[in-house]
Nucleic acid binder design. Structure first.
Length: 160
DNA sequence: GCCAACGTTGGC
DNA sequence: GCCAACGTTGGC
């Protein structure tokens, strides 16, 4: 069992969008970064994902999702009309892969990046480190447990 | 294979 | 909307 953090801009795809899609899993397409792709390739069904909102008013962890399929080719890379089109990715040799995830839980409020940074036990988390832009990051079991504990306790994630 | 130029990310 | 940090591209 491994743990991850995945970023999404809520205006594009939020935790509520994920919740509303509960009956069908959501394919995490559009990732065009090798490190992020490699992380998704090493995911296994049952892995848990911290869902993170970025580029918004209160960036932070907003919920929990579960990996429900291993990585498979991202078809948007084949489609010239897609914003994610990549001519170098072919059906015979797909360059980009992604997993399917499913909604598990939405936290009562955002566990903000500010709150994460204030927690000494989480100082090693990638997401709190400067210049860390990776949209799919590994999370250690200890970090994961701590985040869940904070996120499920009302008031802990309030932004000042 | 170096590295400058460029594009993107994402917090502020 | 600014800008620092980072990744990718492409000329040489």
């Amino acid at each position: 069992m491994q743990y991850w953090l995945m970023k999404s801009e809520p205006e594009t795809f939020s935790i509520e969008d994920l919740r509303n899609a509960l009956k069908q899993s959501t394919f995490w397409d559009g990732v065009r970064n090798y490190q992020a792709r490699n992380h998704m390739r090493s995911m296994q069904v049952g892995d848990l994902v911290l869902f993170y909102h970025s580029s918004c008013k209160v960036p932070g962890v907003v919920g929990l999702a579960e990996v429900v399929s291993e990585a498979h080719p991202d078809k948007t890379a084949f489609d010239p009309k897609s914003p994610y089109y990549d001519p170098k990715s072919t059906k015979d040799n797909p360059r980009w892969h992604a997993v399917d995830i499913q909604f598990k839980e939405a936290f009562p409020e955002t566990l903000s990046l500010t709150a994460l940074k204030q927690e000494p036990a989480l100082s090693s988390m990638k997401v709190v480190q400067k210049g860390q832009r990776l949209s799919v990051q590994p999370v250690t079991p200890d970090e994961f447990k701590k985040v869940l504990k904070l996120a499920r306790r009302p008031g802990s994630g309030k932004k000042s």
